[in-house]
């Protein structure tokens, strides 16, 4: 008598479990990056297309942008590369140093991911070098996605946590001084 009802219940439970399991895959990690683009539009835009003050004229929408924007894995990798390629050297942790800040809302050459990508690849006057061929293109996109996240321009569930250098105190693992186990013999003759 209650058998059809039971069956329906079970079916609903199974469907719910399947839906929950499907939610487990937050995003796909593509380690290869998209194939390199062909044609003259390969690296975004040439500097001459830019309007003063970062006006509405910018590089055209790039289909690759959607792969990197709002993707936690790519933004996280970008954070790593921001450090490894020494963006810190000029832009500090995003607050700017001898280079302009990256976490505010002022963009000299535009703040869309395509424009940031173009700035890294092309370089900009007064100090920003061109990283064309020095950084693989998919990593440039990842760095651009991370820079977008600095000013809170990406979805919260994809944004990485604050970097250690922006914290007022050291991470818990780094509070204790290094234990001096066997005294390191620095004055030993070799």
């Amino acid at each position: 008598m209650s058998s059809p009802c039971r069956r329906l219940e079970r079916l609903a439970a199974a469907a719910l479990a399947a839906a929950l399991l499907a939610g487990c895959q937050r995003e796909t990690r593509d380690f290869h990056g998209p194939p390199p683009p062909s044609g003259p539009q390969a690296s975004g835009v040439s500097p001459s297309d830019l309007a003063a003050g970062g006006g509405p004229i910018g590089p055209p929408h790039d289909p690759r942008a959607a792969i990197y924007e709002d993707n936690a894995f790519h933004i996280g990798e970008g954070k790593r590369y921001y450090d490894w390629y020494n963006c810190y050297g000029c832009h500090a942790a995003g607050g700017g140093d001898i280079g302009p800040p990256l976490m505010d809302d002022q963009w000299i050459y535009g703040g869309s991911i395509e424009q940031i990508h173009a700035s890294i690849v092309e370089g900009r006057p007064n100090g920003m070098p061109s990283f064309r061929n020095k950084i693989p293109d998919d990593q440039v996109w990842e760095i651009a996605a991370y820079i977008r996240s600095m000013g809170g321009n990406v979805a919260k569930d994809a944004a990485p946590s604050r970097g250690d250098e922006l914290q007022s105190s050291l991470a818990k693992t780094q509070v204790k001084p290094t234990p001096a186990k066997p005294a390191a013999p620095t004055d030993q003759p070799r």
């Binding site: 050291l170 780094q174 204790k176 234990p179 066997p182």
Partner: peptide, 10 residues
């Protein structure tokens, strides 16, 4: 090997 710490092994 632990980030932020130094361990020693002889």
């Amino acid at each position: 090997l632990i980030p932020g710490r130094t361990n020693w092994l002889t």
